[in-house]
Design a binder for these strands. Sequence first.
DNA 1: GCCGTTTTCGGCCCGACTGTTTTCAGTCG
Length: 567
Amino acid sequence: MKNEEVAWVFHELADLLEFKGEDFFKIRAYRNACKILAGLDEPLEEIRRRGGLAKIPGIGKNIAAKIEELLATGRLKKMEELLKEIPPGILEIMSLPGIGPKRAGLLLSSLGISSLDELLGAAKQGRVRGLPGMGGKVEKDIIKYIEMREDRRERVLLVTARDLAGEFTSFIKKLPGVAGVDAGGSVRRWRESAGDVDLVVAAADPRRVIEAAAGCPLVSEVLEVNENRVRLQVHWGIEVDLQVVPENQFALALFLNTGSRAHLQRLASLPAAAGINFDPSALPSSEFFSNEREIYARLGLPFIPPELREDRGEVEAALADRLPRLVELGDIKGDLHMHTTWSDGVCTIEQVAARAREKGYEYIALTDHSQSLKIARGLSLERLKEQHRQIRSLNEKMDDIQLLTGIEVDILPKGGLDCPDEILKEADLVVASVHSAFKQDRETMTARIISAVENKNVDIIGHLTGRLIAHREAYAVDVERVLEAAASCGTILEINSSPDRLDLNDQNAARARELGIKMAVNTDAHDLKRMEEMVYGVSVARRAWLEPDDVVNTMPVEKLVKFLRNR
DNA sequence: GCCGTTTTCGGCCCGACTGTTTTCAGTCG
């Protein structure tokens, strides 16, 4: 079992216990374990082998034993017992915004509702309003959120699609007769979510590859087969579309498969495109290309990176030879938004710094939460000062990486920041973000965020819109007005790399670039594993046409420090 | 359920918002 799968069991266990009304602290211990396990960068199997499970901070004897059981049997007795008394649909109901254990319990006991379908039906018949504590608004929200979920059921986060593409690719690669395999489609263009995973395989014998692929342990069902394509349902709730082509058609197939449709249509309209069939079903073609560069050259164009292939002006830019030199992961020299055990992170400053050094970063900023965010153990002013003292003293001991003192300060509901200016002034770097009162009206929220943009001590605005992809809408905020304010104040905007945030998104980041705003691509990591998510933020930057100069954390350390000081 | 140099029990633990109320329960981050 993978770490994430084990972590997920504890997440569900916590939900079930919450439904039962068990002890708050016990539930919190499970939730905490879930967070810790998901953040480990060593496989649990290995930790178990050397008997280290109970030594993980936050994992005690009981949870360690449950992990053992899961790794050994793939099951958890306690979980199975709970599921005997609680219908599994309850977990889905509880995951709706505004529905917690109490309301889920009430729905079950008074209306016998134990699935989203039943709940939707009851809400539409107006049977939910009238239950104690639930009125028309709750009922309307229930309908809204369930329908929203159904709309999105077909798509998964990019990170999930990429993980799946990776696993499937390595399975296919090992098959005999396979000369190459790569993912196309939205996965290759790094769109924020994907409807399926498109794989292109180079092999002489399609039937053999298709048969073997259908036997991959990830596959739950074969949906459709023809002579060189197969559509497979995978256990992760997503489909894989596999196309097998002869090796000399691979580049063209991957190109056509990558899309987007709009990009291909735009290319097809070029005079130089005469003779090329842009319909993927026209393969095999009579023209051969050994790579995509040759295809673009044949069209009279320089290579266009997949992230740009959206028909947002990239073809015109290519024709004029004015494609951007896109920022790359290798350009990133540090991470400016990270959490440690001082607030809600699971690693110490030393652990984070050591990993950053391994990654070749020149600097990192430690930005733990501010005092108001109690749930994240936000730092009191005293603790903040103490942390900054520790960072400075650690800094003196390390000559190959610079640790910047920082804070992620809350932007308070009424505007203003959760930390006095004289203290913010002392920090090397200040990220300001909204973490409360998400439902304020557009005017209030916009003014609130602009108040932070205009504060001279704020360097970066964190995750500007607060959206969680497929889970929570952005706050009602007039992004354009905030961007204008940021442009005029010189405030940096964050591209948060967390795969469920990606906030700014590509379109907002592109607009910010037009306005001359500098951006910072940050992970907001709470553990070592999430430090690896930088690549997702970089992908947003690339889709937004950002060059290294647009991104402040491509600067070498001296330049960055000077830049921050002179802002 | 976890933790501990004040250590094997007792502490961990918050405030704001929302929709429903007419004084508050439930949810959330």
